[in-house]
Amino acid sequence: MIRIGCSGWNYRHWRGVFYPDRLPVKRWFDHYAAHFDTVEVNASFYRLPEASTLAKWRDQATPGFCYAIKAPRFITHMRKLKDCDESMAEFLGRARNLGERLGPILYQLPPRWRFDRDRLERFLDLLPADLTHVFEFREPSWLEPEVLALLDSRGIGFCAHDMPGLATQRGAAGTTAYVRFHGASGKYWGRYSEEALAGWAEWMRAEEAKGRTVWAYFNNDIHAHAISDAKALRRLIEEL
Score class of each variant (00 low, 15 high):
I4S: 05
N10M: 11
R15T: 10
F18H: 14
F18P: 08
P20E: 08
P20T: 07
D21M: 12
D21V: 07
L23A: 12
V25F: 13
K26H: 12
W28F: 12
F29I: 05
D30M: 09
D30P: 02
D30N: 12
H31F: 14
Y32A: 05
A33V: 02
A33G: 03
F36E: 08
T38S: 14
V39N: 10
V41T: 07
V41S: 06
S44A: 07
Y46A: 09
L48M: 15
P49R: 13
E50R: 15
A51S: 10
S52M: 09
S52L: 10
S52V: 06
T53C: 05
K56W: 14
T62I: 13
P63K: 15
F65Q: 11
C66L: 15
P72Y: 12
I75V: 15
H77R: 13
K80E: 14
L81K: 12
K82M: 10
D83V: 03
D83K: 10
D85C: 10
E86P: 08
S87D: 15
E90V: 14
F91K: 11
R94M: 06
R94T: 03
A95R: 07
N97D: 12
E100K: 13
L102R: 04
G103C: 08
L106T: 07
Y107I: 08
Y107F: 15
R114L: 11
R119C: 14
R119I: 12
R122A: 14
F123M: 07
L124E: 08
L124M: 15
D125M: 11
L126R: 15
P128E: 03
P128S: 08
D130E: 10
T132W: 09
H133N: 10
H133V: 08
F137T: 09
S141H: 11
W142E: 06
L143W: 02
L143F: 03
E144N: 12
A149L: 04
L150C: 08
D152A: 05
I156N: 03
I156H: 02
G157Q: 02
F158V: 01
C159S: 13
A160S: 15
A160D: 04
M163D: 02
M163W: 08
A167I: 00
T168K: 06
R170Q: 06
G171V: 09
A172P: 02
A172L: 01
A173I: 00
G174D: 02
T175H: 12
A177D: 00
Y178P: 00
R180C: 01
H182A: 03
H182Q: 05
A184W: 05
A184N: 06
G186N: 10
G186L: 06
Y188W: 04
G190R: 02
R191V: 01
R191Y: 05
Y192S: 00
Y192I: 00
E195G: 03
E195W: 04
A198K: 07
W200V: 00
W200P: 00
E202M: 04
R205Y: 02
A206C: 01
A206T: 01
E207K: 05
E207R: 07
A209M: 01
G211N: 01
V214L: 00
A216E: 00
N220R: 04
I222W: 04
I222Y: 06
D229E: 00
A230P: 00
L233Y: 02
R234N: 01
I237M: 05
E238F: 09
E238P: 04
E239A: 13
E239G: 06
L240N: 07
L240H: 11
